[in-house]
């Protein structure tokens, strides 16, 4: 999971550093010739590192998907030949999308609250969102099982106080998956949005109101666009990271909530079908790439992510 978090953002940064054709943004004049200036060459070891630990293995996975167990397209025809795998892939994107929406809806007001709070309460809010982030994913997931099951804490309390007679179905269904994954992903939504919001000059909102905007108008037409880069970064981070989940949906989800990560793990550790597992991983990567490319056609991702100043 950690890899997936760092990789896309680094890729954005590296490509933004390449010869950038975007003519609109005025840029400081660059020394002609070099791709990187001399301090920039400090980045080279990092690039080499990424090449070794990320690009090479990925190339290996790609090759393997065509060569194991024998050369050919067998793994991909297996994948496209069975409706189950396409369903699971679609399901993976559906769940990741829903988790993204939930974390944005929760994270935006939370981050906003953090900008309003004084130093003490800001610290409390920050710790509250970060502490679960520092505990093991497995422990958090098991904790949710204890909270959400039919005989778990929430249902028992609700039944004891007489609010419900039948347990609420909170576990081993989509609800459980969304609760568990959203909690894990919340810091990834809150932190970039908070970083952006902190740098927004609130006097602009006051100015808008002074010029006759209602508070709602001032929010939507001034504050919201200024925080858009943070929202975009949060969306991208949460969505892409969510695609790789499998422990949480496996433990909290029901029969229809299988995500592709779980199938990949099973193909590897269970039945040792390296080629097919690679093909599944490549399919996930390609579809994710296509989806981001599609989004990029309509939204200027680079400007949204880079324009946080």
């Amino acid at each position: 999971m950690a890899c997936q978090v760092t990789v896309p953002s680094t890729r954005e940064r590296v490509s933004a550093h390449d010869a950038d054709p975007a003519p609109a943004a005025p840029r400081p004049p660059r020394r002609a010739g070099g791709l990187l200036d001399r301090w920039g060459s400090l980045v080279l070891p990092l690039v080499a590192f990424l090449l070794v630990v990320f690009v090479l293995p990925l190339a290996f996975v790609l090759a393997q998907s065509f060569t194991e167990p024998e050369p050919g397209l067998q793994n991909y025809t297996d994948f496209f030949g069975s409706p189950v795998y396409l369903d699971v892939l679609a399901n993976t994107f559906r769940i990741a999308g829903m988790v993204t929406v939930v974390t944005l809806l929760l994270g935006f007001p939370y981050a906003y609250l953090m900008t309003l709070a004084g130093p003490f309460w800001r610290g409390v809010l920050m710790v509250a969102v970060l502490v679960p982030f520092w505990t093991s994913l497995l422990i958090r997931t098991f904790a949710w099982v204890l909270m959400l099951s039919d005989t778990g804490v929430i249902n028992t309390v609700l039944r004891e106080i007489g609010l419900i007679s039948e347990p609420l179905p909170l576990l081993r269904n989509l609800t459980g998956v969304l609760i568990g994954m959203s909690q894990v992903m919340l810091p990834f939504a809150v932190l970039p949005m908070y970083a952006t919001m902190r740098s927004v000059d609130r006097r602009l909102v006051q100015a808008a109101e002074g010029l006759g905007a209602t508070p709602l108008q001032a929010f939507w037409r001034v504050y919201a666009p200024l925080t858009a880069p943070g929202v975009a970064a949060a969306t991208l981070l949460v969505f892409v990271s969510s695609l790789g989940f499998y422990v949480t949906p496996a433990l909290l989800g029901g029969p229809g909530d299988v995500m592709i990560g779980e199938l990949i793990a099973k193909q590897l550790s269970g039945v040792l079908r390296w080629g097919f597992a690679s093909a599944l991983a490549i399919a996930l990567l390609v579809v994710t790439g296509l989806l981001l490319a599609l989004v990029a056609r309509f939204v200027d991702l680079r400007r949204m992510l880079g324009g946080a100043r």
């Binding site: 189950v84 369903d87 399901n91 029969p255 299988v258 099973k266 269970g270 039945v271 040792l272």
Partner: peptide, 15 residues
Amino acid sequence: NYEDVTQRLEEWRAR
């Protein structure tokens, strides 16, 4: 048969 049956079980579960 472990591989094939695992495959079928996974597919059945995901359906």
